[in-house]
Design a protein around this nucleic acid. Sequence first.
DNA 1: CTTACACATTTGAACCTTCAAATCGCCCCT
DNA 2: AGGGGCGATTTGAAGGTTCAAATGTGTAAG
Lengths: 358, 358
Amino acid sequence: MGRRKVTINTVAESARVSRQTVTNALLHPERVRPETLSRVQTEIVRLGYRPSAAATSLRSQRAGAIGVELNVLGPDYHNAMMAPFLGALSTGSRAHGVAIVTFGSDSRVPTIDSYEQMWESQAVDAFVIADTHPGDPRPAWLHERGIAFASFGRVWDDPTFTRWVDVDGRHGTSEAVEHCVAHGYTRIGYFGSPAGTSVVGDARREGWDQARRRHDVAVPTKAHFAPDELDAASVAADRVVADVGIDGAVVCGSDVLALAVLHAVWRAGLQPGSDVGIVGFDDSELARMHGLSSHAQPMTAIGDHVLRLISDALAGRPERTDGILLEPRLTVRSSTRHAGTHRPTDNSEPTAPLTKEK
Amino acid sequence: MGRRKVTINTVAESARVSRQTVTNALLHPERVRPETLSRVQTEIVRLGYRPSAAATSLRSQRAGAIGVELNVLGPDYHNAMMAPFLGALSTGSRAHGVAIVTFGSDSRVPTIDSYEQMWESQAVDAFVIADTHPGDPRPAWLHERGIAFASFGRVWDDPTFTRWVDVDGRHGTSEAVEHCVAHGYTRIGYFGSPAGTSVVGDARREGWDQARRRHDVAVPTKAHFAPDELDAASVAADRVVADVGIDGAVVCGSDVLALAVLHAVWRAGLQPGSDVGIVGFDDSELARMHGLSSHAQPMTAIGDHVLRLISDALAGRPERTDGILLEPRLTVRSSTRHAGTHRPTDNSEPTAPLTKEK
DNA sequence: CTTACACATTTGAACCTTCAAATCGCCCCT
DNA sequence: AGGGGCGATTTGAAGGTTCAAATGTGTAAG
């Protein structure tokens, strides 16, 4: 429509210099005499000049864009984590001078067709992949073609690839245990997905396991696993609550599971927080709504690092020696406000386990 | 990196024709002799030629992209519906030959700065806006500049603007009431955000109001409103459950609120579904997890229509006389499986209200 | 006073596509 | 046989930017 057309030539004429000087003023200011520079800059601002993305892209042979796949048919958690992640990428993209382009496949099976399409049309310079898992075909495919990419989530199949950012789930659940110990909960159980089901889930379980050993916290039996089925999950939640008992706490692999534990606590006639502590993971709307303590993934930092890794890859800078592991931040809410003495994180001798009620 | 460089000239040479013939083969096949056409097409496929997005964009003076703002700091609801919506747009974008570019502002206050930036850099031809509300500055701003856009959500301030797609919340809650009546629930209450708080919420409340009048369903008091605070919302949920009583049902303005009602039903010692019906809205993970009947927004259709409206605007086609109002689809789960007689949607004489327990 | 050299700035070229206009080859008609 | 007309195809040009090379200006050295 009525888009005004301020090109580099408009600015050049106005500032009575050549186009190249305008380019230099923007890209290599040190090459331009200060006096000229300020004159050009003034005109740029006055006219509201912005380089045409298309022309820049054509000349530099770079799309100036990064592709991100959105899987509509994927699992719920995909959408739940993807929205804030995309938001962080989109917000950070401006500073990096790139655009974020989303794409999705309409095919039911997750193929790499859509990646190929995006790449062939030269609409993107690189990709961001998320939700990686062992056996994921995308890293190998991208690597074969020498396509730059970075990942939110470790790339499991290729230990030499370090352009990834991940959240340290192990540290998170470990910190959760320490938080519970510090608040006087004496028996600390874990409620998460069965071992081997998901790499993310396993790391979270390990964090709990290490921390409770380190603090010598009494543990009811072993970690409890939540089946997918609602009814079965409820039963499992009831059991873990019964096992930790009053003054116990349950560290959970996700907020959804924490909600199941919250329900179990209610069913047992107990008060969350004062009787039984609950810690979720991901700090979703769910946790905020129900006063559940939970770990938030530092999305802004994640997005920023991912963009930086992409820049590195595009600039041909060497890979780091390790991936980037960020720590989640625990938000404390009423679900871990214990009725008992609030004592700092020193020696916390476990008290005798109480019997479960109801 | 090692991106192979198949341009239109590569194809032209291989097929021993000129560049323009290749262009014609792609854009105006009828202008090319069938014999030549097939020869060119063969080469295009063999070489894997795809027109460069940048060059096309530069020549045609079109970015070939549509901008979508992602507001990281917005309300949770925003993000919850935004991910599937973006997924639908991304999936549909290929068929429309456009790219979806997301952007966000890092400023804490929601401004239109980011829109201006996007527009000025000529990175997009049009915008999709979502989460419109009365007083939204974006439609007017876009309109003033003659920038093409379409909206997911009615544009309240400008009745003459019809390039929007929305979900008929009124119809949804109305259908929910009828569903409950058909399943033998005799008293049907509503639990949603206070009137005037949100236009979306108001529409949903109206749907309930109209339907319960139409069916002459006994209603406890009036619609109940859920405050933002967790504790207050719980109290309100307890009240609405007490009011509808056994064989009653509660139609909710969102799944989150439906969950609050579910909790209230539990607190009352009742069984969801068999004792008290619950219907949510948006068919989120929450609803699926807890067996709550809920309305799903037809995201694929919404995305498709939005893209079509944008195409219309860019092609200069006239606006429709009305916006597009799509009906949500009710997914029935255990929360509306009534214990009583299952009778079809005929005369359903309300039975005497029962007293609440506990 | 001339030459050399550093620095500031300008010109030429290329990136790839597509619209508009020109050319080519062919058949038909006079 | 030459010209008109038509469809198929080619050539010219433009779109905005940036790299590489060339030009211009000023100062210091010879």
